[in-house]
Design a protein around this nucleic acid. Structure first.
Lengths: 173, 173
DNA sequence: CCTATATATTTTATACTTAAAGCATTCCGA
DNA sequence: TCGGAATGCTTTAAGTATAAAATATATAGG
């Protein structure tokens, strides 16, 4: 059973997700659970679509998107942009290199650094994926009005700042 | 370097996350990226706190929370509540059983099903974790006013319904 | 009763992710 | 210039997650 089917069942049965009946939880916790559930739904859906359509994953797409936007990056820069560990980036880069979607961008002085960029084919593949991705995401948020989207964006921005402050300690430089 | 340190650096350098400068992306995509970034920050922060404080993980906490709320569940029910695959649940259950945090709840007829519940120790441990978790999450959303939280909750609710509809196809029963 | 089908879980193979330890290179201060 | 600290990356071990196939049990129809 795939997760799409699983979600279908969930609704069919009238079962709730983990947030479903947590009416006694504090407001912040309910907010957290709701946020995680939404992200979970998005990631599972996009993951399935990327797999079925392009035989790839969200992690790979994010890596390629970073290169598409920035042109050429060291693995450390990718790690910081995607906010994932350096070891993770090493593995992803190896697999993407294997698939000839990225290639080495030879030396810029620092011999420790590992610079990579999209290959010609990688850029072509990415463009297709990005177009599809945009359509998929648009469909997912189809029920939200323009105003809802703006409000949600603004509130998530506030949430992000709150989260970053807490995450980074109190050094509000 | 841990991810907390990584995030610190990101801010120190003035680098943006993957959303940072995607001003040309469509509204829905920017919304998606913002949502994923927020969840990412929450999960990494909570993950670090759970690891440092209780030597455990968010996935285990979620599993225990489901049992705490429902009392006794089959693995399939856990799988549906947490919206993760059944194979994943099998592995988590094995590890939690190994640590004596959950125990088998012997047969209720169906010999295919694997019912589990919190052990006495598991319930005790969970209570401690839940208390800490609540405080951590509260701190993370500290900057949001009561009104912001309500607005965000309402909008996420709308988003969730939009996502579910899209995910489940058009069967609006 | 028997058989086909559905359900519940486990197994397998693979990918993603992390923390921590290790290696190589660069940088910086004495 | 020399030596230690910082930086960039890779490796390692473990956990998390999935899809798909396999196994075991239950259920329903004939």
């Amino acid at each position: 059973m795939t997760l799409d089917e699983r979600t279908r069942m969930l609704q069919a049965q009238g079962l709730q997700d983990k947030l479903g009946d947590a009416p006694h939880a504090k407001a912040a916790v309910r907010l957290e659970l709701r946020l995680l559930t939404c992200t979970h739904l998005i990631e599972q859906r996009l993951g399935a679509l990327f797999r079925e359509t392009f035989e790839t994953t969200l992690a790979r797409f994010d890596f390629l998107a970073a290169l598409d936007r920035k042109g050429e990056l060291s693995l450390g820069e990718v790690s910081r942009l995607l906010m994932v560990s350096n070891g993770n980036v090493t593995g992803l880069a190896n697999r993407l290199r294997q698939d000839r979607l990225i290639e080495d961008a030879p030396g810029r002085g620092d011999r420790r650094a590992q610079y990579v960029r999209l290959s010609t084919n990688g850029a072509r593949q990415f463009k297709k994926m990005a177009t599809a991705h945009e359509g998929w995401v648009e469909a997912m948020f189809a029920e939200l009005s323009e105003e809802d989207r703006e409000d949600l964006m603004r509130l998530l921005d506030r949430a992000k700042h709150s989260l970053r402050r807490e995450t980074n300690g109190e050094d509000r430089s």
